[in-house]
């Protein structure tokens, strides 16, 4: 019963003189995605273990996000002199999307080191560990995303049909999440100082990107915003929901940054895949 599944590839060759790195990296990705059930089960397990014994479980994050949205909404709407029912939907989408992005980036740093025990014992595709990291963050985000709907209902605003484009934005975020988890997972496994650097960079990015403030506040300097990858990727989700759509330039920028992230991650993966087991 057990042999049938793996019998397809029974010859394992590792030759240091002819490493065939690209071929192996592609095979790793293909096998990892084909076996998505494993990372999905591991991601569910991660969530279950993280909140074991807790009454609200992952809904604690929903609750704290809700409190933050209301608190910051009241404060900043008076600071920026914006009507609350106009500012609150913007802030809710911003904060929830940003929390999702920053949680993914933080978790990406441990995407491989947290699976150290498995990596050193079982010859699994590394893609499995990366997918596990992406999926567990997707599960966590899924607990907060419905809050957006709640805020929209409370403020009496509803986006039109263009809101469906936010789904395309979410796909873009997911692709980026995979690339970042792959890249940072490897770099952080090798250099243990990167994770704290990433954490402080993310904090800086939070204030430099239009999360709390609206892009219009920048005035003339708004034209530079499409250079900020955090802004453009976030905007592909936020724009369709609260601003009635996204400018083509933003889509273009977000798409280019995504391609860049994937290319860099893939290049690193091809070159250093064989070293990961020694790094973690």
């Amino acid at each position: 019963m057990l042999d049938q599944i793996e019998a397809a590839a029974p010859l394992y060759i590792a030759d240091a003189a002819a490493p065939r790195r690209q071929e192996k990296a592609i095979a790793d990705l293909a096998t990892g995605f084909r076996r998505w059930r494993l990372p999905a089960a591991l991601a569910r397990l991660d969530i279950k273990n993280r909140y074991r014994g807790s009454v609200l479980g992952p809904f604690w994050l929903t609750l704290s996000t809700a409190v933050m949205v209301v608190g910051l909404g009241i404060l900043y709407s008076s600071l920026f002199k914006l009507p609350l029912e106009e500012y609150l939907p913007f802030l809710a989408v911003s904060l929830i999307v940003w929390n999702m992005i920053s949680a993914i980036v933080a978790d990406a740093c441990v995407s491989l080191t947290s699976s150290e025990g498995i990596i050193r014992q079982l010859a699994l595709p590394y893609t499995v560990h990366i997918l596990r990291c992406v999926l567990r963050n997707a599960l966590i985000a899924a607990h907060s995303l419905p809050l957006i709907l709640l805020v929209f209902l409370a403020c009496g605003v509803m986006p039109g049909a263009e809101a469906l484009l936010a789904l395309a934005g979410l796909v873009l975020v997911a692709v980026n999440a995979f690339a970042v988890a792959l890249f940072l997972g490897m770099v952080c496994a090798r250099f243990r100082d990167i994770a704290p650097i990433v954490a402080s960079a993310m904090q800086l990015a939070f204030f430099l990107s239009p999360v709390l403030w609206k892009p219009e506040l920048l005035g003339d300097r708004q034209v530079w915003l499409p250079l900020n990858p955090f802004y453009t990727v976030m905007e592909t989700v936020r724009g369709p929901l609260v601003e009635g759509g996204v400018a083509p330039l933003i889509w273009l920028s977000a798409g280019l940054y995504t391609l860049l992230a994937c290319a860099v991650a893939f290049a690193f993966f091809v070159r250093f895949r064989g070293r990961i087991a020694f790094w973690v």
């Binding site: 793996e6 029974p10 010859l11 394992y12 030759d15 240091a16 279950k48 014992q121 079982l122």
Partner: peptide
């Protein structure tokens, strides 16, 4: 078992591999 890639030389393993190396690998205590 394919966990470590050789730094030098060549290794060929033909056949379905079963490894009984670490009993607790992939075991979740909770």
């Amino acid at each position: 078992a394919g966990v470590y890639e050789p730094v030098g030389g060549r290794l060929e393993v033909q056949g379905l591999i079963g490894s009984l190396i670490d009993p607790a690998a992939g075991m979740d205590q909770e």
